[in-house]
Nucleic acid binder design. Structure first.
Length: 423
RNA sequence: GGAGGAAUGGCAGAGUGGUCGAAUGCGGCAGUCUUGAAAACUGUUGAGGGUCACACCUCCGGGGGUUCGAAUCCCUCUUCCUCCGCCA
């Protein structure tokens, strides 16, 4: 959530910035300002009542000590008046505070100045492209056909034991997936990220911390028997590790990587675009998460982009990088780069990574701060990215590496798979 | 799952109704000394709200209660520890 201070001190720049998101923020911001003033005025009044009550209590104590019981008892009358008053003020204050919070939750992150205006994914700005798109010929198959041909993924089995969108990977494909996970983790570790294994269930507080709650609970699976959620991404548990934390300036950079399955309830549409591995309820992903000094976060973002590039380069997959436009930018993100791999057999780009800087938006909810040079506590910046999401990388490899003899295994993965051809 | 015990500042650990935002030690920071460092000594050192700055207010695991007044008493929840049971 946005910092109140930013909204209080705003000179109209915010409204302008939110236009890129096609959002008329003026009424939202005005509402927040109004509620903030209400809250503060209630707080001031409550503080005054409590101050009087505190000092009376002290006097009463002293009077009792001196044995002036009558005087003390006389003062008690005033105290109980104050108590009533503080009780009702406190209730109003609680209401005002939660109204204010609710109003703040409605405001998305401020887009970075480099974010292009636009309404949908067609307005995203391509900033980089690399790799040769293989020529496959007419016999080329999309990955769901390849999965059948070589008996690699069983979607029906998944339906049988769970439901649609929960595929079962078999044989060499399962092995290939395991190889990719190990390879990604190794690359991330090499790049300075510390590997973590984290729980795949999180509590409510964690959902709030990274912004899945209160609005997007429909996207997460919730347990019926306990107030826990299956994680939609490793971002949630990993970033929340640092909730309610004050880092030291020397703790930067904080860099973690984690492999987890990801669970998404989102129904999605049906048709070619969600066939096969394109859209699933459960998939695997290796995530990278950073916490940075505000002065360094964009440098860090660039570093993450470069890092993902080197992985795709090694896998020899044709890819491009998009800078998301305001209309496509996630609610909590200030700047996001999407990586897409070209699938020749599907003749379309597949999103395989999303790298974002959240600036202080998540940190504000998380109360993730650091002590700066002057020893003041300030909010840190959080960033994360996929390095990488498995299913579409797998699809890209299957489709782009297919030959008459079978599916070749990318060079860098052979040490992990132990075989060089799936057939 | 059963029986006990515990939860206090970065850490350790006092504090059982007012003089407690909280002793003491360690750690951190600043200074004295030193060519420099260490040691020693001195000072300083929680977070949030509020204010031009003070004042003032809140916070001793979470929530509720008793009381003029709660870290301290009561209820409740959560978590941790010990013992027993079960189990990968």
């Amino acid at each position: 959530m946005l910092q109140l201070q930013v909204i209080r001190e705003d000179q109209g720049d915010l409204v302008k910035a939110f236009k890129k998101r096609n959002l008329d923020a003026a009424p939202l911001l005005e509402n927040v300002k109004k509620l903030d003033e209400e809250r503060r005025s209630l707080q001031t009044r409550l503080d005054a009542v409590l101050a009087e009550s505190n000092s009376l209590s002290k006097s009463i104590g002293e009077l009792f000590k001196k044995g002036e019981v009558e005087k003390a008892n006389a003062m008690k009358a005033r105290t109980s008046e104050l108590k009533e008053e503080s009780k009702s003020l406190n209730e109003s204050l609680g209401q005002a505070a939660s109204d204010l919070e609710a109003a703040l939750y409605l405001i998305p992150n401020v887009p970075h100045e480099s974010v292009p205006a636009g309404t949908s994914d067609t307005d995203n700005e391509e900033i980089f492209r690399e790799g040769d798109i293989p020529v496959l010929g007419e016999h080329a198959l999309p990955h769901w056909e390849l999965a059948k041909k070589y008996d690699l993924i069983d979607f029906e089995w998944g339906v049988k034991i769970t439901g649609s969108g929960f595929p079962v990977y078999k044989g060499k494909c399962a092995r290939l997936q395991r190889a990719l996970i190990a390879y990604f983790l190794d690359k991330n570790t090499e790049a300075g990220y510390t590997e973590l294994q984290v729980p795949h269930l999180v509590n409510e507080a964690s959902g709030f911390g990274t912004g899945q709650l209160p609005d997007k609970e429909g996207q997460m699976y919730e347990l019926a028997s306990d107030p826990l959620f299956l994680i939609p991404t490793a971002e949630v548990p990993v970033t929340n590790l640092m909730r309610d934390t004050i880092l030291d300036n020397s703790d930067f950079p904080v860099r973690y990587t984690a492999y987890t399955p990801c669970f998404r309830r989102e129904a999605g549409s049906y048709g070619a675009h969600v066939r096969g591995l394109n859209r699933l309820h459960q998939f695997d992903k290796v995530e990278i998460v950073r916490v940075e000094h505000p002065d360094k976060s964009y440098e860090a973002l660039d570093g993450m982009v470069e890092h993902v590039k080197t992985i795709l380069r090694e896998l020899q997959l044709p890819f491009r990088i998009l800078r998301l436009c305001g209309g496509d930018l996630g609610f909590t993100s200030a700047l996001t780069y999407d990586f897409e791999v070209f699938s020749t057999a599907q003749d379309r780009w597949l999103e395989i990574s999303s790298v974002s800087n959240f600036e202080t938006y998540q940190a504000n909810r998380l109360k993730l701060r650091f002590r700066d040079e002057d020893k003041k506590t300030r909010l840190a910046h959080t960033l994360n990215g996929s390095a990488l999401a498995l299913p579409r990388v797998l699809a890209g490899i299957m489709e782009n590496y297919q030959t008459e003899e079978g599916i070749r295994v990318p060079e860098v993965l052979i040490p992990y798979t132990g075989f060089d051809m799936i057939n």
